[in-house]
Write a protein that binds this DNA or RNA. Structure first.
Lengths: 383, 383
DNA sequence: CAGGCCGCTTAAAACGATTCAATAAAGGAC
DNA sequence: GTCCTTTATTGAATCGTTTTAAGCGGCCTG
């Protein structure tokens, strides 16, 4: 080590010193970069370069680096994010807008997002739109003020007009939506392949021998409803199975993502009243399926003995319900990860002043077979 | 209005002008306060005072205010939060640390937190500790760097050592925990009154006539376990009901908040193997109860016909499971609100350089009677 | 020995707001 | 006419970083 410029003993960071510095920090005096500069005997510029391992750091003498790093550690220096951001224009934060956080669908996605952001040293700023336009708007406003570097919208069950995202495009802030697809080339998206999912579910029921299958379709306005149904139809066509329109119901529009349960319950009761026999029921999502099961049970029908039921999503509770639910799993956590990757790519590109590609990713659904479906029984198949 | 200093026509903000300004903003040029100053013909200082309605604003001429506000609106001025925070030392953000986000318990709490913060114009910065100490630590570090004004820890199912919060106290940053109680006067807390809850549940079963009641207690390390059990014991004592220790099981320690389901399943199977008859089972929480129901069902026992089951928490799925779960509801969303109130009070106090009171709030649980419990039947009560 | 280069370090100017002390004009009192 | 108040506004310092261009010895080279 070079000659001691300070009166600091050359002892390898003894406990006494560390104690002292802790005490100093505890006084509430915020340790600034200047303090580290003074303590180490170098200038703030050098300190910044070393601590950030900036390009210029390659020219800094190793001994210098060591001294600075040690000083920083001793003083318990923590860079002030605000100051840094002001200068560098980078907040290292990403807005995460949940259309409605109460949807159990959101939880795994959120974990995926948080996790990927954490790996990349980004921080999520959360906003919950309560499925209301004005909240959505004001929350966006707040995120813009905070200069989030990107935005992820978890638009699971959404009737919110998402065209409000224009401001983000204007400012070149990358946006990715999950579970919603804004056509065009302004916004990336991550969605499950709904068509494949619909197909998987029906294929499963069909292979179990079911030929009298009831359907509860999703609300018209929900973007998932159409492709999911299309997948069902395509499979039906491919095996020459004719869907009985009398057994097709549709959930009403609703702002509440948990309304599927009630909807499934009521629509199933309606189905039962029709006295049109069915041996299986395919629901729009898991909550709807649970509602359906409830209605069936109430009517004295056992699942799966008298009627198989399949859901969609594989939310956490599907594995725990009784009977556990056969369903089409969306890789939710992965979708969170993918969305983060997409925005990070956007951020990097935007940093380097180049365009980034808008991607519309589709993830593969996976059939999860549990207890709520089984092969059609002899007693119920004849009618 | 005073004589037109600028060449701006006195037309009441015509569409043409607004159009133009939009265009300007859309060029990606960030509108700064200086721009507003120039456009309005006043100095940045005045602009700041007006736009923030600072104390000095009382001396500003109404006409001036109007001109400045109009200019700001026209230019689409949005204050730069980072710059503001650097100077004013206020970030208007609160760290929200979730010990494990996958716990369905968290969702309503999170909604409560977000909502209350939103009302107060604060923003939540989310962190998920995955129930791991090192993640907890690093996340705290990130929150400190970002100078969050307060911290809320949702410590539902936690084996993390929470004493890491010391840094926050040193810096006078208010901390409130939800579902965890750090004794002493450094950290506020919001918890459900577990003792009352335990009492409510047992009282319910007892009044239904159950006298052979099995219990699945929570893991030892979980702070809720003890008072919940105490409430049970107290009620038992008060009615001279003797708890059969052979019917008392305890969940093992586990880092996974969703492990209660498996645990409940296994322990219930163990109970059944004992061939010791019971007509009701009281589970530590809802997931445990669902696991228990599954085990009972598997053994051919019907719930509630052969055995009543009660849970605790009232997470979202409890209402949707079959049979729906009788449980003790925690007012989760409210608890989120309360935690926010607590930290806001702390922030205000800290701002005014006065001490704030550390509160340990207990919220009242509420018995929610659903299908999984019913009066003891004659067939099962005699043994 | 002038000039260039190398290796290491730093002075100083941002970044975009807030805020204090200062100023200026206008009126009122003496 | 001077001084004080009140009203209205602003210059300039400041917050804690990052970053650019420059500085400074000393060594090498022609």
């Amino acid at each position: 080590m070079s000659p001691p410029l300070q009166s600091e003993p050359t002892l390898p960071d003894d406990a006494g010193h560390r104690e002292a510095s802790v005490k100093r920090a505890s006084k509430g005096i915020t340790v600034t970069m200047r303090d580290v500069a003074k303590a180490s005997g170098f200038s703030p510029a050098t300190v910044s370069i070393v601590l950030n391992n900036a390009p210029l750091a390659q020219y800094i003498a190793p001994a210098t680096k060591k001294r600075i790093e040690e000083a920083a550690r001793k003083l318990g220096y923590r860079p002030n994010a605000m100051a840094r951001f002001l200068r560098s224009k980078r907040t290292h934060s990403v807005g995460v807008m949940l259309i409605d956080i109460t949807d159990p669908f959101c939880t795994p996605i959120l974990r995926g997002i948080e996790n990927s952001l954490y790996q990349a040293s980004y921080v999520p700023i959360l906003a919950d739109a309560h499925n209301q336009k004005n909240r959505f708007e004001r929350a966006l406003e707040m995120l813009l003020e905070r200069h989030v570097e990107a935005l992820i919208v978890v638009a699971n069950w959404s009737f919110v007009d998402i065209h409000l995202l224009a401001d983000f495009n204007k400012r070149n802030i990358p946006v990715t939506t999950i579970g919603w697809d804004l056509p065009g080339d302004t916004t990336s998206s991550v969605m499950v392949d709904n068509e494949a999912g619909g197909r998987l579910a029906l294929e499963h029921l069909y292979k179990l021998g079911h030929r009298k299958i009831a359907f509860i379709r999703g609300p018209k306005m929900l973007i998932d409803s159409v492709p999911r149904w299309k997948g069902i139809q395509k499979f039906a066509n491919s095996v020459n199975y004719e869907i009985d329109q009398n057994l097709v119901m549709q959930l009403p529009e609703s702002l509440d993502p948990n309304s599927g349960f009630d909807g499934g319950f009521r629509l199933t009761e309606e189905l039962l009243q029709k006295r049109k026999k069915f041996t299986a029921l395919m629901a729009f999502d898991d909550l709807t399926a649970l509602g359906a099961i409830r209605a069936l049970t109430k009517a004295g029908l056992k699942v799966p003995e008298h009627c198989s039921v399949a859901g969609f999503d594989d939310v956490a509770l599907s594995a725990m319900s009784a009977p556990s639910l056969t369903t089409v799993r969306q890789p939710l956590e992965t979708m969170g990860n993918l969305a983060v990757n997409a925005v990070l790519e956007g951020i990097n590109a935007s940093q380097e002043k180049r365009d980034w590609t808008i991607s519309h990713q589709k993830t593969s659904p996976e059939l999860v077979i549990r207890e709520s479906t089984r092969a059609v029984s002899l007693s119920s198949s004849d009618d």
